[in-house]
């Protein structure tokens, strides 16, 4: 759930609710974007305190999983579902695959294209941004398959975007590079991290908020660095003078 981009308080609340439904008296949950700690304590038995720690690696945003777990916890607490049946359902949720790659690819391309026009591009920019969006999203997925970290990934993706955009802008008179690059950057902008970090801050989870804020800032810096590097190099070889 944390991996898929839920807020801290939602995770803590869900765990507490599920544990209460299992008739566990004292539950303490401490969740962070990098790990969850849960301590269970049953009053009726002695020495029955147990603690679980689960390390969390960052993953992809998957709102469908949040929705499913949300529904699950509601069902679990209101009906008397057995623990085994519940676990089965959770595993099933975990196994769910994201949309097909092609669908997401088209989504990504549409995003890049629409934003390039919203940032003042024309129809030529729309077309170019669509193609570059396709390419860059594929490239970013390709890099993540090799386990390359998010900083380098963001940098390389926007660098590729900037490079192609500059070539297109130099060869086609109608196209401008600014709207295309901004449009493609929107694809990789850490919107989820920013929104969640602020929400975590304001619900009192300072540590979690800080972690996500740093993540967002680093991603933004990587995007800017990637595009900036290529623009600067292009200027140095005399393509355009800014």
């Amino acid at each position: 759930m944390l991996k898929s981009g839920a807020e801290i308080y939602r995770v803590e609340e869900t765990i507490t609710r599920i544990c209460k439904a299992c008739r566990i008296d004292n539950v303490e949950v401490f969740a962070m974007p990098t790990g969850i700690f849960v301590t269970l304590d049953n009053d009726s038995e002695k020495d029955s305190v147990s603690t679980y720690i689960s390390r969390i690696r960052s993953g992809e945003t998957d709102l469908n999983k949040i929705s499913l777990v949300n529904q699950f916890s509601r069902d679990f607490t209101t009906t008397d579902l057995s623990v085994e049946a519940g676990l089965d359902r959770l595993h099933e949720i975990d196994r769910q695959k994201p949309y097909q790659f092609m669908v997401r690819l088209i989504g990504a391309a549409v995003v890049a294209a629409c934003f390039s026009v919203m940032f003042g591009g024309n129809s030529m920019d729309f077309l170019c941004a669509f193609l570059i969006g396709l390419l860059c999203y594929t490239f970013s997925r390709f890099l993540s398959k090799f386990g390359i970290n998010f900083f380098i990934r963001g940098m390389c993706s926007t660098a590729l975007a900037a490079f192609i955009a500059l070539i297109i802008a130099a060869s086609l008179p109608d196209a401008a590079y600014q709207p295309i690059i901004s449009g493609v950057i929107m694809l990789f902008v850490p919107g989820v991290a920013i929104t969640n970090s602020i929400r975590d801050f304001l619900s009192g989870d300072m540590l979690a908020g800080l972690i996500r804020l740093v993540e967002a800032v680093l991603t933004a810096v990587s995007l800017a660095a990637g595009a900036g590097l290529i623009l600067k190099l292009w200027g140095m070889i005399g393509g355009i003078t800014f």
Partner: peptide, 25 residues
Amino acid sequence: DAATIFVIPGILCLVPGSGIFNTML
């Protein structure tokens, strides 16, 4: 359903991506 599901896609349009780009420029 959880509000996050609607907030995240909705808010992404407003996130200042061009701001990042222009700062860098």
